[in-house]
């Protein structure tokens, strides 16, 4: 791992819906070139944190500071959702897969490259008349789509409707689509859910490959085996608060985490909690 500098700094993140506190004073740092996993039981606030980072929710409190490798900083909490993807280059996938089901696999990947493609059409007018540099831009976009189709093993299904793909392939396509936006941070919401062990192993390799090429990852996952295998850093949430933070080995050894999440008996958890309370 290269000298790990901060990519995303989350400070005092809070999110409340009416009287319900979904996130309360959560702070963590995702470092550049690492896979950072966010784990926690159902309802811990993991997806809410993702929605705050990717601009689908506006946080009630706290700051989200993203820093690119060239030093440019983005205060995500104040940016409109589509600009977070466009300028700050944060891409995401969804817990319930959100593909363009009635469009082909290739079309899905071209929609992901809409922003550079649209810029090449001259406000759409030149491209209608067949002028301008649109053709070259489209060739380039298709080449990039083909690259990601090869890496996600979907090339043979490029012209099939996305909605007709098997579940595992849809998950991979969503990752390919997100990667086609050239992100610096890729947020994956339960990418291994519903995958068989062979598919999960392939996903491991894909995620490591993405990380090694310079795109950092933020990962929500319930598959503990996978989290422990691929993560460089793990953050544990429970009931909207951060419970722990560390390397996989540290997390595995943290009694509070074990109590809250990794399946200690109810009785033991009660026994542990007062001892560790501040």
């Amino acid at each position: 791992m290269a000298a790990a500098e901060a990519l995303l700094e989350v400070r005092g993140l809070g999110m409340r819906f009416g009287g319900i506190v979904a996130l309360d004073d959560v702070s963590f740092t995702a470092r550049r070139g690492e896979i950072t996993a966010v784990i926690g039981p159902n309802g811990a606030g993991k997806t809410t944190a993702f929605n705050c980072i990717t601009g689908f929710y506006r946080p009630s409190a706290g700051s989200l500071q993203l820093t690119h490798a060239d030093g440019r900083g983005f205060a995500l909490a104040a940016m409109p959702g589509h600009l977070i993807a466009r300028r700050a280059r944060v891409a995401r996938t969804f817990q319930n897969i959100r593909l363009f089901a009635g469009m082909t696999v290739l079309e899905n990947l071209l929609v992901a490259q809409h922003v550079p493609l649209m810029a090449a059409t001259g406000l759409g007018v030149l491209a209608i008349l067949g002028l301008g540099r649109y053709r070259a831009a489209e060739r380039h976009a298709i080449a990039k789509a083909r690259l990601w189709l090869e890496r996600t093993d979907l090339l043979a299904r490029a012209d099939d409707p996305a909605g007709a793909l098997p579940y595992g392939a849809q998950r991979r396509l969503e990752i390919a689509r997100a990667m086609c936006t050239d992100p610096v941070l890729l947020c994956l919401d339960e990418p291994a859910a519903g995958l068989n062990p062979r598919e999960t192993a392939a996903l491991d390799a894909l995620l490591r490959g993405i990380r090694d090429e310079g795109c950092s990852l933020l990962l929500i996952e319930h598959d503990m085996g996978m989290v422990m295998r691929v993560s460089d850093h793990i953050i544990v949430l429970d009931h909207g608060r951060k419970l722990g933070d560390g390397t996989p080995a540290e997390i595995r050894a943290d009694p509070r985490v074990i109590a809250a999440y990794l399946g200690e008996d109810e009785e033991d958890a009660d026994h542990l909690a007062p001892a560790d309370a501040p």
Binding site: F56, A85, R86, L99, M103, A178
Partner: peptide, 10 residues
């Protein structure tokens, strides 16, 4: 097809 996915793509 999906407005939310569009937004996530910038």
């Amino acid at each position: 097809e999906d407005e939310i996915a569009c937004r996530s793509l910038g």
